[in-house]
Write a protein that binds this DNA or RNA. Structure first.
Lengths: 344, 344
DNA sequence: ATGAAAGCGCTAACAC
DNA sequence: GTGTTAGCGCTTTCAT
């Protein structure tokens, strides 16, 4: 019962003794430093093996002044929508990518009420770098810390003065333009948009991409309603669009959750999709996939975004040259919601 | 530009100097030890404030032999379904609860290929405790570590011999029974189940709850198909159920994702919900909420489960007495999918 | 109540 | 290549 199998963690010193070398040599082996004879290295390996030695992180980081910890900062308000599938996938990507490195992932919920606490934690030498994922992805209020600590953001900065930050994102404007063109190509002419909050880059950029596509085609680009990315907001925006009395034969919602909401609102009014109105979303999550009919969308590589963020940060910490902006490709997923109508 | 605002982290020694006391006293204040004069304490507080001092975690943990770190272990296969809304919420709950403590959350993706690596990490003195959340929530293969490290599981253990573990869960059997009774009360008699994998407690317990309810009502409890909790599996199971040729006027799917899949399959066959078949799910996520009609479900307090797990672990680490099993309440959410049919 | 001293387990010059 | 020597910043007896 009181089997001592897993008691007192063995120290580097014990390994050294067993291997018949000095602590320095053991340390070198552990950190696979270049200069160690293969004989010595082997002896050490064996000792480590038989003792089940695991380096003590605290001691290591105290001595080396490196923590091997990367903070994943999630503003509290964003945490509330943690269940946002897009966001969850990004976190997953980060975790997966980091699992392949020596870094440990430290998830920090940053209370908006006490930003100083987070700031101090990050600057207190407790982490080697930070990843900031916010639903309000334009908020680079931590950007200033970037001069003291390597930081990578999910989503491009909103304000120009913060453009010094490193970030990973998709090209929202181009993607929105592409999906709008798809709507045009499938014969739609009266195309509305349910845009996202305009104080977020994703909201603003998707709106502008939609506008560019319409203007290039000589179509009207004034059917606009704004929502806050939730299904409920999407439904309400859709109702406002319909209540305006203007003809509408297609809607581009700035994310799939709003598209799903719009779909319900259309049904409510007895309109069929894609018969009366074509519908497109953005993100490529299961709100689009699970809808009936499936909603055409622009798929973001959400896991890939997380992986890339982690990768960029690790390279940044290593002192490598990295582009400040990294854009990941999106992919148009065509589903039933934009099927062409039978010719009149 | 090179503003030294946030350079070299101040040390405890500097605080001591500024406050005119010894390092010991500063340490006592920081750890709000009992015996310090309020004068001294105040001086220290001020010094800390003006210097923006943050204790160095590594040094602290090296000296105290406590890490203040809690590992959240996510088996890799589970990470792949990270986007499972239920799972994401649990993680969110854990993070939120821990944010209120001195503990730091360390997310660990445990590769099934190298379990020893995770084992060693956990036992290597790098964490004060661990939380294990697995989709295969009966898998308490880390249970043995429980004797060396405080561990709390999400979900009850599957095997009896592992019942020594601490866990937080909902009463799946009772909840399934309740929702099945709801089906019966709304007039259904030929009630099928799309059960989850039977090697997981949630799968087995929900099936048994369904069976108990039917048997208590003298109804047939043999319309059973099994799925793996995904929408696709739910759809396939539904098709098998329909293909069996036996009459069915209600289906209880063991989670909302499978319920959503079942809904598509029913539609596919031209059956209406709730007109021809009533449908119920389990979890209370947006697969149920967003469906059309909304799917009646058993809502789990997913965030609450995470919070509770964190709480139990923190108390365990503190050496308090804690029940090994903690059950959280579920709530029946009635939606359109189980609306009574107009009397024949 | 407070200070002095001795490490916690490891890395990092620096000699050899 | 390898060992020796100092600490990294903090907590913690033990005196006082």
């Amino acid at each position: 019962m009181n089997n001592d199998t897993a008691t007192a963690a063995p120290t580097l010193e014990q390994v050294a003794a067993l291997a018949g070398v000095s602590r320095s040599t053991v340390s070198r082996v552990v950190n696979n430093s270049t200069k160690v004879t293969s004989d010595a290295a082997l002896a050490v390996q064996r000792a480590i093996e038989s003792l089940g030695y695991v380096p003590n992180r605290a001691a290591r980081s105290l001595a080396s002044r490196r923590t091997q910890v990367i903070a994943l900062v999630v503003p509290e308000s964003t945490a509330k929508v943690f269940a946002d599938p897009f966001f969850a996938s990004v976190v997953q990507g980060v975790a997966l990518r980091l699992a392949a490195t020596e870094y440990t992932l430290n998830m920090v919920i940053a209370s908006e009420a006490t930003p100083e606490k987070t700031r101090r934690y990050l600057l207190g030498g407790n982490v080697d770098g930070a990843l900031i994922v916010s639903h309000h992805s334009g908020d680079h209020s931590y950007a200033r810390l970037g001069s003291s600590l390597p930081i990578v953001f999910g989503g491009r900065p909103l304000a120009a003065e913060e453009e010094g930050s490193y970030f990973v994102d998709v090209d929202n404007a181009l993607s929105a333009r592409t999906i709008t063109e798809h709507l045009i190509e499938t014969g739609r002419r009266e195309i509305a948009i349910i845009a996202g909050r305009q104080d977020m880059p994703a909201g603003a950029d998707r709106l502008s991409g939609w506008r560019v596509a319409l203007e290039a085609a000589g179509l009207d680009a004034s059917r606009i309603e704004i929502g806050d990315f939730s299904p409920r907001d999407g439904a309400e925006a859709m109702r406002r669009l319909l209540d305006s009395g203007r003809p509408i034969d297609a809607v581009f919602a700035s994310n799939d959750q709003m598209a799903a909401g719009a779909l319900s609102a259309l049904r409510e009014r007895g309109l069929s999709v894609p018969g009366d109105v074509a519908l497109a979303g953005f993100d490529g999550d299961y709100f689009a996939e699970g809808a009936d009919p499936g909603i055409t969308t622009m798929q973001q590589p959400s896991i890939g975004l997380g992986e890339k963020m982690a990768e960029v940060l690790v390279r940044l910490i290593a002192g490598e040259e990295v582009d400040r902006a990294t854009y990941m490709p999106t992919e148009l997923i065509v589903r039933g919601s934009t099927a062409p109508r039978p010719a009149v």
